[in-house]
Design a protein around this nucleic acid. Structure first.
Lengths: 257, 257
DNA sequence: CCATCTTTGTGCACGCGTTCACAAAGACAT
DNA sequence: ATGTCTTTGTGAACGCGTGCACAAAGATGG
């Protein structure tokens, strides 16, 4: 997957382990799909398969919420949907602001996943005066000057940062000063935030690098294992590596982020 | 942060812990910034601060790569940049295909973070015939029919899925059949993949839900602290009642993803 | 060459998360 | 009622990751 957690100092929130919280949305999605198909109950085994986790883990996760299952039968889908939604705080409306309406910010504004599940885009904010007033996802972009006013008037507590890396820290500081206490950061920077503010980061570049590491390992293993018996993918990867550009192989092909 | 890992069965790759691998790109970014400012050496303390981690953790991470530091001095920035790049496999070129050129796919295609660090967008692929040939990020979109050919001709081993949820599983199967062994999945679905294929997922909706959980907890804590010390059961009942929106309070306010 | 000072590298202990395996609980049939 | 069968809920063991704290290593100055 593509993100890591930030600043969660092992503070188990209300007795529910952080790892469990991170999986609840996964369960919720699977349960919602079952609910749409009018499936009344589901066993831990089935649901675990749908969510891609171990069934024992799922049962233990649910046990933190309470005993909502029936032995010999399974879990009531509708009831569980409600319980998880409530636990995650999705029974209320969360106004969200998106700061930085470039390619990514615009894509986020158009993303359906925001609108569903209780998240409402309260405003789109950009520092470029030329963007002000332009409609994106059926909503006029507002200038950064309005940031504090928007947050206070709408009671926004969650902010999404989709600005360039250079602006992210400053934006986060303004968001926090205005009352935001949770930030989803798409900018490739480590945000420095005060105690009590939650930051989660989504970093495409980092995810790719992690994949590259494993990819390289696979290729290397395959190579070392046998020159013969190469699986097709590894063989092609090796070829691609051999096709490397330029004979000057000693300078790392790394560029600034 | 905004991602979770998938299907990493505690298989410590080449002796480097997965948690360390996930941090290497972070260090690399901080080091690259130092390198641009022509800083020759850096201590574990300084670098850890820049990367937002504990200095002991950083030193232990580096110790898995080898002993690249000098006691009393610190780490040589350029050398470390090279070593980490090599370890992550960034000294070679990784051709990548992006499947699903909607808002998000287009944003990804335009994202600078791909072009840098050895990742090269080899092709943009979409199932919509109307998209075929249209230029996105200076590159013509190709139709899904060409998927297998593109992957094989370019030796692509990393695929990015930015399609709607419904198409993701099928796309992943085609990618894998054609030789892709690492997938970065932006679609809100759990991909079912065979052994040996790495999947990382980026799920905006899940990240927001996790933030909402903590946000609710903060609000709840403040409330509970302010109000008289109600027993947990009573408090949860009160919350449930307060959280009901509208008069039709028995239907959970959750929508399909 | 020796003393001092800085900073690395790591042994160790602790806590979280995962998984196994099983007893308890309930449904269902007879 | 009673027995059987299914599935939950959880005790316990294990392994990974984290962070402390310190000894070893080297630089630097006299």
């Amino acid at each position: 997957m593509a993100t890591g957690r930030t600043h969660r100092p092992a503070t188990r929130s209300r007795g529910i382990p952080e790892a469990t919280v991170a999986r609840l949305p996964l369960y919720l999605r699977a349960l919602t799909a079952l609910s749409e198909r009018s499936v009344p109950t589901v066993s831990s085994e089935e649901l675990a398969a749908a969510a891609g986790v171990n069934s024992a883990k799922l049962r233990k996760d649910f046990s933190y919420l309470g005993s909502y299952g029936t032995r010999g039968v399974g879990y009531d889908v509708e009831y569980l949907v409600y319980q998880i939604s409530r636990e995650l705080g999705l029974t209320q409306d969360w106004p969200v602001v998106i700061v930085g309406i470039g390619n990514l910010g615009a894509a986020l504004a158009n993303y359906g996943g925001f609108a569903s599940r209780g998240f409402r885009v309260a405003a789109l904010i950009d520092a470029d005066p030329a963007m002000a007033g332009k409609p994106v996802a059926g909503m006029p972009v507002q200038h950064t000057d309005e940031l504090e006013k928007i947050i206070e008037e709408n009671g926004v507590s969650i902010g999404v940062i989709a600005t360039p890396a250079g602006a992210a820290q400053q934006v986060s500081e303004r968001l926090i000063a205005a009352g935001v206490t949770s930030i989803l950061n798409f900018a490739p920077t480590v945000l420095q935030v005060p105690e009590g503010v939650d930051v989660r980061k989504v970093d495409l570049s980092i995810e790719l690098q992690i994949l590259a590491f494993h990819e390289q390992r696979k290729a290397g293993d395959a190579e070392a294992a046998a020159a013969a018996l190469l699986p097709p993918a590894a063989r092609r990867a090796a070829e691609a590596a051999a096709n490397r550009k330029g004979p000057d192989g000693d300078v790392p092909a790394v560029m600034p982020a």
